[in-house]
Nucleic acid binder design. Structure first.
Lengths: 131, 131
DNA sequence: ATAAAAATAATAATAATTATCATTTTTATA
DNA sequence: TATAAAAATGATAATTATTATTATTTTTAT
């Protein structure tokens, strides 16, 4: 018997796949990535597990970009940059919202903020250099 | 002949519909809203025009929220708040990104930022009061 | 070793959005 | 005003991403 794991073998592989990249993949990417290793992998399993990771706080959804949901195993607070040329998604590690600012939202708008997502659009370094 | 309009009658009506609300509607809402007036309105026409407004800079996409794209005729820089209870979307008029900050992104990450979207999640005032 | 629980594969179903194309409306201009 | 060209639309089909279903397999607990 193998070493005790928290997950099923495939669930583990899916989690490791999203941990192995900073490309903020979608379900399709993960599926293609793991297909060679797990020839009987089902796309539904990838979707199911990515959703589960988000529910369990082990991943976050970067949002729906160009019609497809993208994921990130990095759950620390950070923002994202989408290149409108090559569609790449990269991280922006810059704190935008202080505690006070979020608190001021609560006061000014009467809302209770639990999370936020910041998405920048533009042209990435690589595409800028190419152009 | 009627007063000269920039648009076809239906396109005008769709634009006025999204201008008439701060609810950040999706295509379905606009369609239901206009159906009584235009009994032969087609949902495809709504989708086509909402997309066109975004391309022409007369509206923006708030993003895909719970599987549906939402729109806003207010194109001035502002952010959005999504209530995870009642799914309402409201405006947050607070400038988060100064010119210097955006410039610093260019310098630190080598990217050229052209736009940004900020989405807060949480519980809205009305739902908080109800709970 | 084995029974119960959980996860999966295969597939069907769903839902939002986009494409197609014949018809209608609008626009430009004679 | 009439009319031809261009643009927009309705109806519908197609597409695409995602979710649901269910029989089977894997994992877990004992």
């Amino acid at each position: 018997m193998a070493v005790r794991e928290n997950y099923s073998r495939k669930r583990n592989a899916i989690y490791q796949a999203i941990c192995s990249t900073k490309s903020h993949p979608n379900a399709e990417w993960v599926y293609e990535q793991l297909k060679p290793q797990f020839r009987d992998l089902s796309l539904g399993t990838v979707y199911r597990n990515l959703k589960k990771f988000c529910e369990d706080g082990k991943a976050i959804s970067v949002g729906v970009i160009n019609g497809q949901e993208h994921f990130d195993a990095d759950t620390t607070p950070h923002s994202h940059f989408v290149c409108d040329r090559c569609q790449s998604i990269s991280d922006i590690y810059k704190p935008f919202f202080s505690e006070e600012l979020l608190k001021s939202l609560n006061e000014e708008y009467g809302v209770s903020v639990t999370s936020n997502e910041v998405l920048f659009h533009g042209v990435c370094k690589e595409c800028l250099e190419r152009e």
